[in-house]
Computed example of a mutant assay.
Amino acid sequence: MKTKTIWASLFAALALIVPRVALAADPCRTQEFEGIPFSVCEARAGDDIRLWLKDGTGALIGTPERLRAQLAPSERLVFAMNAGMYAPDRQPVGLFIESGVELRPIVTAEGPGNFGLLPNGVFCIGERLRVIESRAFAAAPPACRFATQSGPMLVIDGALHPRFLPDSDSTNIRNGVGVSAEGDRAWFVISDRPVTFHRFARFFRDVLGARDALYLDGSISRLIVPAEGRADLGLPMGPIVGVVAPVDGQD
């Protein structure tokens, strides 16, 4: 835990001093909430949103450089970030579906750590973009091209997770995903300074209007936005979520 805290402090400091390239059409934006800057990357249901874990040889991808190597010459990475909790070997802790194939099963039991702080949930990428409580997902699994399980839920049908405390002193760099009530939009967010769960959840609900939102990771969270020159430093990732688009001028 001490090592993770040191990394979190380092990332927070770097976020304040590393310059970013401002483009006419930035894929992500910065929004402040209660004095804290949050980086928000928005995607729509028709966008090419993917999850990655391993390359074609079975090796874990883990880094921005290896991730970009998975794309076709006609494709570019718009943004990417951590996509959920993982074990020391960087394998997903819970459900993971990639290109329609279930690589890890769903976990519905209560357990230790943030993942086991029920209710937790699943981010499902299908015709709609959905964040679904894990036991509800297990009872009636929707069709997902990609899906990742993490926890805890941040926002559940418009309400904050019942275990979050407004006066908590537990702060971290955090990243997560929230979805609109219609399922047509998803917001991928990372706090650029340490925040509590309560403040992070309220940002999704009160600023972005997310009906449901899911915590993805904490002090080791990273955001990669090539067009802005942003590639947060950190340890290799486990599951990764991101958006891919055609190279300019190609369809």
Rank of each mutant, 00 (worst) to 15 (best):
P19Y: 06
R44T: 12
N175W: 04
L160I: 03
I125Q: 08
T196A: 11
V195W: 12
F96R: 01
Y215G: 03
V179D: 06
P166V: 10
P119R: 07
E98H: 10
D192N: 15
L60P: 06
V101R: 15
A227V: 08
T30F: 10
F204M: 05
F11K: 14
R104M: 10
L23S: 15
A201I: 01
G238Q: 04
N172Q: 15
A69Y: 07
N114A: 13
K2E: 15
P37R: 00
I240Q: 05
V189A: 00
I17V: 15
D167Q: 15
H161A: 04
A15D: 13
G35R: 07
G249K: 00
D206W: 04
A181M: 01
A13G: 14
Q31C: 02
T57K: 14
A43N: 02
V93F: 10
F123Q: 02
A159C: 11
A87L: 15
G242T: 00
C124P: 01
V244E: 01
S134P: 03
A83F: 08
S219W: 02
V107W: 05
P37N: 04
V195A: 12
V131K: 00
A147C: 09
G35Y: 11
Q70L: 11
E42T: 11
G94H: 00
P112L: 12
T57S: 13
